[in-house]
Lab assay of single mutants.
Amino acid sequence: MTEYKLVVVGAGGVGKSALTIQLIQNHFVDEYDPTIEDSYRKQVVIDGETCLLDILDTAGQEEYSAMRDQYMRTGEGFLCVFAINNTKSFEDIHHYREQIKRVKDSEDVPMVLVGNKCDLPSRTVDTKQAQDLARSYGIPFIETSAKTRQGVDDAFYTLVREIRKHKEKMSKDGKKKKKKSKTKCVIM
């Protein structure tokens, strides 16, 4: 069974824990209790493949930012979460993405942009803004509501699919490099 290491990042209060708990335990946590770091595991079937999701729910508070490099190193894919009623959390996505790329030393890291709290009427981040940002990053965008469960499975499952595509691409690139290195030079 394939294991996928997913990391949920975003500013404090955007609903990272609520999304994760909704996926794992099928219930909505409405009281806000700032996370330092929590880890969850769940076995699911995605596109006919049974897999184990190892999900790291991270601290959004700035005082825990020193811990970010460590979990970013171990993560295979990242859910970059903002709240649709919090423009600052949307603007912060850029910083999370840049930090992930720096730590992973790669421009090509599996990510999904997630606009959470889409059940709320007080939207300050337009869907088109988020779609445009995701398009500019070359990553999928999904709106979710941890409260109603809308888009929750889709967000995590899409990230797994992005990781699969990335692994497939990397193995193809690896095979191309191996083929090239088999060419021999004969000096007579």
Rank of each mutant, 00 (worst) to 15 (best):
I36H: 00
M170V: 12
K16L: 00
T20Q: 01
V152Q: 14
S39R: 15
L53M: 11
Y40G: 00
V29G: 04
D154H: 06
V103D: 09
G12R: 03
V152A: 07
T74G: 10
P121R: 08
Q129H: 04
G138S: 05
Y4I: 06
K147E: 06
V112W: 02
K177V: 11
F82T: 15
G12S: 13
A155I: 05
H27L: 10
Q43W: 03
T50I: 13
K42M: 09
M72T: 05
F90D: 07
T58R: 00
S39D: 04
E63L: 03
S39T: 01
A130G: 05
L113R: 01
K169T: 12
A59C: 03
T127H: 05
T20M: 02
V7E: 03
S106L: 12
D153I: 07
D38V: 01
Y32E: 02
K16E: 02
D69M: 10
A11H: 11
G13P: 14
L6W: 05
E63T: 07
G77S: 07
Y157L: 09
S181F: 07
R68F: 05
K42P: 01
A59F: 00
T158G: 06
Q129R: 08
G75T: 04
K182F: 06
G77F: 14
G48V: 07
K178H: 09
N85I: 14
G12D: 13
A11G: 09
C118K: 10
L120R: 15
N86V: 09
N86S: 05
L23V: 10
L53G: 10
Y157R: 13
S136T: 08
H27C: 10
L19R: 01
L79S: 01
I36A: 00
E98I: 01
H27W: 14
G77Q: 01
D33Q: 02
D126V: 07
G48Y: 08
P34V: 02
K16T: 02
K178P: 13
H27V: 05
K16P: 01
N86I: 02
P110H: 03
E162H: 07
T74V: 11
V9S: 08
G77R: 01
E162Y: 13
G115P: 12
M67Y: 05
I84E: 15
K101E: 15
I187K: 14
L23M: 14
F28S: 01
G75D: 03
L53W: 07
R97W: 12
L6H: 02
V125Q: 12
D57G: 00
G77D: 02
V112K: 02
T74F: 04
T20P: 00
Y64K: 02
T144D: 03
G115Y: 11
V81N: 03
T74D: 14
K88C: 11
T87G: 06
K42E: 04
V45A: 12
E62L: 04
